[in-house]
């Protein structure tokens, strides 16, 4: 997923939640990011920073972001084999395509054992905000 899009999404979500909860200041959020999203942490943090500044409110100025990347694990639906993202040996272009639209992994990754494209992503995709802490 694109870092800026993710940062924008996180901020929009945090702001809405803080309104619901009546928070004046967000102190910490925890985000879990799937490895398949191919997010570059530095770019994401930079984007988050820029967008926070652009908000022009004190709501987010003290916000600490804790990020946890969940390793991707694929499982072949045909032979049951399990493997990880690094085992896929993708080219730079393929990685970039996956970065923009993670599900296109199905176009580029095959089961290392039986070559099937019919695999499931057991873990390590998507993004979620695990917790939001703040003061009311």
């Amino acid at each position: 997923m694109h870092e800026w899009a993710l940062a924008e999404a996180v901020i929009a979500t945090v702001i809405e939640e803080s309104r619901k909860e009546g928070l004046e200041e967000i102190t910490k959020i925890k985000i879990k990011i799937g490895e398949l999203q191919q997010i570059e942490t530095e770019i994401f943090e930079f984007a988050l920073n820029e967008l926070t500044k652009a908000q022009g409110t004190s709501l987010l100025t003290k916000m600490k972001v804790e990020m946890d990347t969940e390793r991707a694990i694929f499982r072949c639906r045909v032979c049951g084999n399990e493997w990880g993202f690094d085992d896929a040996g993708l080219s730079e272009d393929e990685n970039e395509a996956i970065h923009f639209a993670p599900e296109v992994a199905h176009a580029y990754i095959r089961c290392p054992s039986c070559k099937s494209p019919d695999f499931e992503v057991l873990q390590g995709r998507g993004v979620s905000i695990e917790s939001i802490k703040g003061r009311g």
């Binding site: 997923m1 395509a97 996956i98 639209a101 993670p102 599900e103 199905h106 176009a107």
Partner: peptide, 22 residues
Amino acid sequence: YFTGDKPSPLRGIDISNAMLEL
């Protein structure tokens, strides 16, 4: 733009996820 001429076999949950990303 991201798959080119490659087939990308997507099942239900993959379709939802791909659409969410797009």
